[in-house]
């Protein structure tokens, strides 16, 4: 059981848009830079890891009711993206780490495994 807030602290993420539910429990995530792929395969409540920075990522996250977006490789989201994120209550974070490293970090926090367990129950 880990919340978005704890993930942010433990993985040292920089919060770029702080409106949204940071106490939400995160059970799984999805990594992709292809928007339609995220729409097809992410699950509600997932944390999304991507290098895309344009406003449409917020639309996708809203559509799929994702818990938040982590932008990797130190890329900065566009202003318009952050404006939309505030409006739609989608937390947006950035990290210097690569997608590979951040996913590793998330797994170490037990997130990927939690999804599997949830399925078994």
């Amino acid at each position: 059981m880990i919340t978005l807030k704890e993930i942010i602290q433990k993985l040292n993420l920089e919060v770029m848009s702080a409106s949204g539910d940071f106490d939400r429990e995160i059970r799984g995530g999805y990594v992709s830079d292809l928007l339609s792929d995220v729409i097809a395969n992410s699950k509600e409540g997932n944390i999304w890891i991507t290098l895309q920075t344009h406003p449409n990522i917020v639309a996708v996250a809203t559509l799929k009711e994702l818990a938040g977006i982590i932008i990797v490789n130190k890329r900065k989201p566009e202003d318009e993206t952050l404006k939309k994120a505030e409006e739609e209550n989608i937390p947006v974070m950035v990290t210097e780490l690569s997608a590979f490293e951040i996913v590793g970090g998330l797994y170490e926090l037990g997130i990927g495994r939690a999804t599997e367990n949830a399925k078994e129950v």
């Binding site: 830079d33 292809l34 928007l35 339609s36 792929d37 729409i39 097809a40 991507t50 895309q52 344009h54 449409n56 990522i57």
Partner: peptide, 15 residues
């Protein structure tokens, strides 16, 4: 480069 063009959009609609 913006992440469009996976070629999955129409399929998503169908699904």
């Amino acid at each position: 480069e913006l992440g469009f063009g996976a070629g999955m959009g129409l399929l998503n609609i169908k699904n």
